[in-house]
Design a protein around this nucleic acid. Structure first.
Length: 461
RNA sequence: GGCCCCUUCGUCUAGCGGUUAGGAUCCAUGGUUUUCAUCCAUGUUACAGGAGUUCGAGUCUCCUAGGGGUCACCA
């Protein structure tokens, strides 16, 4: 069974890059009928917060990503890590190192000065003398000092590291006894049964260290997929400082979860020429073997296009529900179907859609000067009055019925359609632009239409 | 600096030795629309550079350049 995971450290909101690797992991597990588990890496007490964990969970909920089983918190697993540290100590695969931070610092400086790689010199590796007084030891793992470590990566292929280039006896437990990242990640992944690790390729160079831990403990090494970074417009790793990387900010901007997910799944992954993927298609078609090798630049142009697409394809009752979060209540509006059908073709975001609804539903208080100049030409008052008079004597409901009245005026007065369309539009909305004028009238209803015509004439005559 | 990864239109990408190098987005133009948007059509724009292998290279090899990541008692 395929078991994947998402393992954020709760230092803030869920970020776009994290969401994409989470999505990949989720899709791969679902496609294989496996499990997708969540582990909160909250060992850095200074930087973690509960709110951050909640924020991540909230974002998952919004997007409909569901983790399987209980959430694992690293902060509650100290006993487990302690046990394995002890085991390695007992087996002679790890040892106490009494070098102080200052000494380490000094060693590092000397090495740097000689243009050597900063590297622990192994001075306590085989130490059996009397430890120095007053130093709380750290625990280091005995790492291979030569030979190759090969990461069999599903995206990059086999990546070969030389132990002497990158390894030293790295610390697995700090002086205060707390375990370090590369150690706990390996243990947790192994113990949680994770056999397919999909994560950012910024972790690629950590992987050999984790492999050292797996091997010391006799655990099976999972399959790794290191997905390329998402870069900002400067070509650097996308970070929380880049703005609009908070997943929930997209909700507030009026993006639909399906649009955001579709957008992200296509960043670094593709399936031929297909651009639109429903969640079920993603689950069916996603395969990490199709992940790209190169980083991509974060650019949301396509997200807007996708969002517009998904808005067009969202049923009106669903839109009514979503719009309520943007302060627009249409629940009891009798013409909401006509209104939304006309408007959802033109909105890129829900926020925009909400704005468009407001613009139509609200009686204009002022009239755009340019629009007035363009639309209110010779005879416009007479035309609108004529239209108003005809409207008063009928009971139209559908756009086509309003349209028929407009045609009547056009024929009778022998004028072009624009002669009535433009002034009517400006009279009703205060500006040019917007949906068909007959649709607008059908939505407004007869009374409101007449009122707006009267007001426009009174104010602009 | 060491190590590792990457390099096709502005952007997201297809391509897996033989293609007029395809799609999408963006932009521009035209059509539809009383307006705007949608929609449709058309167009501009790409294999980082250099060697080699081969009848033939975006595709394979090597070198160069450029970009990125990572080198903690952070995760």
């Amino acid at each position: 069974m395929v078991v994947t995971r998402f393992a954020p450290s709760p230092t803030g909101y869920l970020h776009i890059g994290g969401l994409r690797t989470a999505l990949f992991s989720y899709l791969w597990a679902r496609k294989n009928g496996g499990k997708f588990v969540l582990r909160i890496e909250d060992t850095d007490k200074a930087r973690n917060s509960d709110e951050a964990t909640q924020a991540i969970l909230k974002a998952f909920e919004w997007l409909g990503l569901e983790a399987d089983g209980e959430i694992t918190y690293q902060s509650k697993r100290d006993d487990i890590y302690a046990k394995y540290i002890q085991q390695l100590l007992d087996e002679g695969k790890a040892y106490r190192c009494y070098m102080s931070k200052e000494e380490l610092e000094q060693l590092r400086e000397t090495q740097m000065a000689n243009k050597e790689r900063a590297k622990y010199d192994g001075r306590y590796r085989d130490f059996d003398g009397t430890p120095p007084e007053g130093v709380k030891p750290v625990i280091r793992i005995k790492a291979p000092l030569s030979g190759e470590i090969v990461v069999h990566d599903g995206v990059k292929g086999d990546v070969i590291f030389q132990a002497e280039d990158i390894l030293d006896d790295f610390i697995i437990a700090r002086a205060d006894g707390s375990p370090t990242y590369n150690f706990v990640v390996a243990i947790d992944d192994a113990l949680m049964g994770i056999n397919e690790v999909i994560r950012g390729d910024d972790h690629l160079s950590n992987t050999p260290k984790q492999i050292v831990v797996y091997e010391a403990l006799g655990f099976d090494i999972p399959k790794f997929y290191h997905v390329p970074m998402i870069h900002n417009s400067q070509g650097k790793k996308l970070s929380k400082r880049d703005g609009a990387t908070d997943v929930m900010a997209y909700k507030e901007m009026g993006y639909l979860p399906e649009a955001l997910l579709n957008f992200l799944v296509r960043l670094g992954w593709s399936h031929g020429d297909q651009e639109i993927f429903s969640m079920s298609e993603m689950m069916e078609l996603f395969d990490p073997k199709d992940i790209n090798k190169s980083a991509s630049i974060y650019n949301t142009e396509k997200l807007d296009w996708l969002n517009a697409h998904y808005i067009k394809n969202t049923p009106n009752d669903k839109l009514v529900e979503l719009l309520s979060e943007f302060g627009v209540v249409l629940t009891s509006h009798d013409k909401k179907e006509i209104l939304l059908d006309a408007l959802k073709e033109r909105a890129k975001t829900l926020k925009e859609l909400a704005g468009m609804v407001e613009e139509i539903v609200t009686t204009p208080s002022e009239y755009d000067a340019k629009a007035l100049k363009k639309a209110m030409k010779e005879g416009w008052v007479e035309i609108l009055n004529n239209f108003g008079a005809k409207l008063t004597n009928t009971e139209p409901h559908l756009p086509s019925e309003y349209h028929a009245i407009m045609e009547e005026v056009v024929n009778e007065m022998e004028i072009g359609f624009g002669k009535i369309g433009m002034p009517l539009r400006v009279a009703l909305l205060g500006k040019m632009g917007g949906p068909n004028i007959d649709t607008i009238m059908a939505v407004l209803g007869k009374e409101e239409t007449l009122l707006r015509i009267a007001q426009a004439i009174a104010k602009n005559k």
